[in-house]
C-alpha cells in the first residue's frame, strides 16, 4: 500500500481517515494522527467514499498543492478539488493539471508510464492458469496463445510535449510541438489556433489531424 497523499510505501503503521490511507508523516502533517490512529486493524475499518475527504484536507493549509486558484478552463475543476477527491471533471483536466498534481498522485502506483493497449482492438490476453485445484471441476482451459502481447509503446518514444498558446512563439515552433503532441490532451482553443496556423503554413496533413480531433469532440 502507498500513502495516498505523498505516495510513500506504507509498512505496518498507517492511518486511514475517511477512506484515505496516510503514512505517519502525512498524518502528523495534517494533525489527525492522534485522534484517528489505529494499529494494523484492517478488520474494523469501514470504507466510506473519498468524496468525504475535502473538509479534512482543507485543514492542512500548508499543503502547497491544495491550491484553489488553478482551474480547468473547460469544466472549472480546481487543483484543490482534484487533490482532495481524485476526481476529474473533463478530459482537459488531464492537460491543465498534468505537470503538477498528476505526477504527485500517480506516484501511488509507482509508475505513470502507460503500457496498455491502444483503442480499437482488444488486448490479446491469455490465461496462464494451468492446474485446476483437485476436487473441483475445471473450466475449459483457455487456449494457450503463444503470441505474447508486446507493449503498445516502444520504449524510446518521445514524451509528448505540453502544448500551450504563446503569442511570443513563432508558427514553426508551435506547429512543431503540435505535430508531436498527444492531441487527446490539447485544449480546444489551441487546436483551433493550430489549425489556422497549419493551414497558413500549408501543412494540410497536420491541419486535417487537428480538425478531426476538434470535430470528434464537438460531435462527441
Amino acid at each position: 500500500m502507498r500513502c495516498e497523499r505523498c505516495g510513500a510505501l506504507i509498512g505496518n503503521s498507517y492511518v486511514r481517515f475517511n477512506g484515505t490511507l496516510l503514512c505517519d508523516n502525512c498524518a502528523r502533517d495534517l494533525k489527525i494522527d492522534e485522534i484517528f490512529r489505529r494499529q494494523n486493524s484492517m478488520l474494523e475499518q469501514s470504507f466510506p467514499s473519498l468524496s468525504e475527504i475535502p473538509s479534512v484536507f482543507s485543514l492542512g493549509s500548508e499543503l502547497d498543492f491544495a491550491n484553489a486558484k488553478i482551474r480547468c478552463p473547460r469544466c472549472g475543476m480546481t487543483l484543490k478539488d482534484i487533490d482532495s477527491s481524485g476526481q476529474l471533471g473533463c478530459i482537459e483536466c488531464y492537460n491543465t493539471f498534468n505537470e503538477t498534481i498528476l505526477k504527485n498522485i500517480l506516484k501511488r502506483q509507482g509508475s505513470s508510464e502507460y503500457l496498455g493497449r491502444k483503442p480499437g482492438k482488444a488486448a490479446e490476453t491469455t490465461s496462464n492458469v494451468t492446474e485446476p485445484v483437485p476436487g473441483q471441476i475445471p473450466d475449459a482451459p483457455a487456449a494457450k496463445d503463444v503470441s505474447a502481447k508486446t507493449p503498445a509503446q516502444a520504449a524510446g518514444e518521445e514524451k509528448p510535449q505540453k502544448v500551450q498558446p504563446d503569442a511570443a512563439q513563432d508558427d514553426k515552433a508551435i506547429l512543431d510541438r503540435l505535430r508531436k503532441a498527444d492531441l487527446g490532451t490539447v485544449p480546444d482553443d489551441v487546436l483551433e489556433d493550430g489549425m489556422k496556423r497549419a493551414a497558413a503554413a500549408e501543412d494540410y496533413d497536420l491541419a486535417a489531424r487537428l480538425r478531426d480531433e476538434l470535430k470528434s469532440r464537438k460531435e462527441g
Partner: peptide
C-alpha cells in the same frame, strides 16, 4: 474494443484511457 471502434473514446498516448478518476 467494440465501443472504441464506433465511438471517439478519450485516449492519450501519455496517460492511456482517460477516466473520471485519477486512480
Amino acid at each position: 474494443a467494440k465501443f472504441e471502434q464506433c465511438m471517439d473514446i478519450a485516449f492519450s498516448d501519455r496517460f492511456g484511457f482517460l477516466t473520471s478518476q485519477i486512480k
